[in-house]
Design a binder for these strands. Structure first.
Ligand SMILES: [Zn+2]
Ligand SMILES: [Zn+2]
Ligand SMILES: [Zn+2]
Ligand SMILES: [Zn+2]
Lengths: 138, 138
DNA sequence: TAGGTTTACGCAATAGAGTTGCAAAAATGA
DNA sequence: TCATTTTTGCAACTCTATTGCGTAAACCTA
């Protein structure tokens, strides 16, 4: 974790106070480079209070550090935002892939195909693909 | 509700026992012709036990009478299946639309566009559009 | 259609994910 | 350093949904 100054900079630029918890959580996301469920975080930070973790995730989501990945499984999953996201403006048009084998959820590079429905105003589109991911296919 | 015999036939063909509750719930779906959340059903069937409603919805979903619509809101929503669905085989490729104004979720005719991701095996795709529905746009 | 088996129902309790209230602790800024 | 604001930790709580179990209803077969 040689990124302490970088992490501080990210928190500051997103108008978040710098606390030990937030540094730890953000560092974890940056290090793992993958989406994370609440359970993942709970396991990593056993000493931390559940409520604080929830509040950290909410704060990060509100301030454009993380985006919450829509999921029907009942487990919220979070992924890192682009550099350009902040409180006012953070939109994500990319698709997500959930692997039935390993259970991981990935942010894909590709954007959700644009869909137009006559008579409807489409403002947002979430596409979740399920199947077997690259790692598990091999 | 002049469809009693029809409803009975549907239940039988899906290998479901015919009970008063199931007839009522299925009749409600057929009459309303729209997707229904658990709350909708609870309000319609105030005299019924919540658990029975949950179990009815689960049985219908397992036997291909209803399909559960993936939703990140924490409220399960259900829509009628096609005639061809049964316990073994009920797949749905259609998109869903959630209106931010009225809150209703609609099953759309159109299927989810086919997406291929190199290296991945895509087996299922759920696309949920959000915005303003035809009724609320007007 | 009666009798035995299987399944559904109703009630209470429980599980699981997430939130809220509040006092103490920490971060910020002057 | 000190005052102000935000965050943390703990307990209690909300909300959706499930499980266990005894009773009631549906089904099947003779
Ligand atoms: Zn974002
Ligand atoms: Zn993502
Ligand atoms: Zn179906
Ligand atoms: Zn549908």
């Amino acid at each position: 974790m040689a990124r302490y100054s970088e992490i501080k900079k990210i928190l500051k630029s997103h108008k978040l106070r710098i606390t030990d918890r937030r540094i730890d959580v953000l560092e974890f996301f940056l290090r793992e480079k993958r989406t994370m469920s609440f359970k993942d975080l709970e396991e990593e930070f056993k000493d931390s209070d559940r409520v604080t973790l929830y509040r950290t995730l909410n704060a990060f989501t509100e301030h454009g550090v993380l985006h919450k990945i829509p999921d029907d499984s009942g487990f919220a999953t979070y992924g890192l935002c682009h550099d350009t996201c902040d409180s006012e403006d953070h939109y994500h048009d990319h698709m997500h892939f959930k692997c039935n084998e390993c259970g991981n959820i990935e942010c894909l590079e590709e954007n959700v195909p644009v869909v137009e429905i006559p008579g409807y105003q489409v403002k947002e589109a979430n596409l979740i693909l399920k199947g077997t991911c690259r790692t598990c296919v091999a």
